[in-house]
Amino acid sequence: MPTAVTTDTRAGSETGTEDLPVLDSPRKVAPKDARELSKLFFDRLTVLEEGTHEYQYARNTLIEMNTSLVRYAAGRFRGARGDEMEDIVQVGTIGLIKAIDRFDLARGVEFTSFAVPYIVGEIKRFFRDTSWAVHVPRRLQEARVELAKATEELSSRLGHAPTVAELASLMDLSEGEVIEARIAANGYNSTSLDASLGGEGEDDTAPLAEFIGREDPALELFEDFHTLAPLLDRLDERSRRILHLRFVEELTQSRIGDELGISQMHVSRLLSRALERLRGGMLDES
C-alpha cells in the first residue's frame, strides 16, 4: 500500500511543522516507509518545545505511524491468555509511547530495535502484575507465556497435544520445570466456589464447592479438644499427670509407675478410670 503523504504547506503551517510531510492516515503508512519517516519526525522532535501543539503533532504522528510494531509484538502473545487482542495492543501502545519519549536519534540505533523491547516488556509486566488470581513467582509467570506459545506451535506442527517431554525439548527446560509451569498456570484464573456446575437442568447443577470440597479432619479434632478441655480440669492432679506422661511424653505404664512411685497395675487401673470418665463426659456432651 503506498504511503498516504501530502505536501500541503497550509496544513504544515497550521501545526508549525512546515518541514515535515503531512500524513493523511499515519496508521496506514507501510512499515518500511514508517522507518524513514520516523527519522524525520524524531529529528524535528529534538528542536520542538515539549508541550507545544507542534511537539504533540510530531509525537502523535510517530505513535500512529508505529502502531504496526505494537501489533507485531502483541502477536507473539496470541493464545497466551484470554484477553482480547485489542486489549493487549493498548497495553503495548504504552510501551511504544515510552520508547518514543526515550529514543535518541543521535545514538544511531534503529527505532524498531529500540522500541520492540519496550513494547514486549510492557505487555509482560501487565500479564505479571494484573492477571494472576494468586501470587506466583515471576519466573513461573513468564514460563507460562512461553509454555502457551510452545504448546500452540507443537500442536500445529505435530497434529496432537504435545507431551511434557516434547515441550521440555522445545523450551529448553527440564520436564520438571514444564510440569511446574503447568501447575502454576492454575493460579492464573479463579472461580467462585458458588459457581454452578453440572447438567443443563436446574436440578442437575450443584455448587463447585460440592465437587472439590472435603471434610477437614482437623476441624473434628478441634471440636473434640474443645469438649475435652473442661473434662480434664475435673480430674484430680494425679490422673492428669498420668494422662500427660502416657499420651504426651509417651511413657510406658511401668515407667509411669516408677515416676509416681506406684505399681504398673495401679497405673493401669488409674489410667482406665480416667479414660472412662473422659469418655463418658464426651458422650454426654455430644
Rank of each mutant, 00 (worst) to 15 (best):
residue 269 R to H: 15
residue 109 V to T: 15
residue 85 M to F: 14
residue 51 G to V: 08
residue 65 M to G: 00
residue 100 I to V: 08
residue 119 I to V: 01
residue 205 T to G: 10
residue 201 G to K: 14
residue 5 V to R: 09
residue 173 L to W: 11
residue 139 R to N: 10
residue 141 Q to M: 11
residue 132 W to V: 04
residue 273 R to I: 06
residue 110 E to V: 13
residue 6 T to S: 13
residue 123 I to F: 00
residue 67 T to S: 05
residue 240 R to F: 03
residue 266 H to M: 12
residue 109 V to F: 05
residue 50 E to T: 14
residue 139 R to M: 08
residue 144 R to A: 14
residue 210 E to L: 12
residue 190 S to K: 06
residue 69 L to T: 02
residue 67 T to M: 03
residue 148 A to F: 00
residue 160 H to Y: 10
residue 29 V to I: 08
residue 159 G to E: 06
residue 79 G to W: 00
residue 280 G to Q: 06
residue 83 D to L: 11
residue 246 R to Q: 00
residue 130 T to P: 01
residue 161 A to Y: 08
residue 24 D to Q: 12
residue 285 E to D: 12
residue 138 R to T: 15
residue 248 V to K: 13
residue 162 P to R: 02
residue 274 A to F: 09
residue 59 R to K: 09
residue 161 A to H: 11
residue 246 R to Y: 00
residue 155 S to I: 02
residue 165 A to M: 05
residue 249 E to Y: 03
residue 49 E to F: 09
residue 142 E to M: 07
residue 188 Y to I: 07
residue 94 I to K: 13
residue 30 A to P: 12
residue 116 V to C: 10
residue 171 M to V: 05
residue 144 R to W: 08
residue 254 S to H: 12
residue 172 D to V: 05
residue 183 I to E: 09
residue 215 E to R: 15
residue 116 V to A: 11
residue 22 V to E: 04
residue 91 V to K: 00
residue 66 N to H: 07
residue 74 A to L: 00
residue 9 T to M: 07
residue 270 L to S: 14
residue 191 T to F: 11
residue 103 F to I: 00
residue 140 L to W: 02
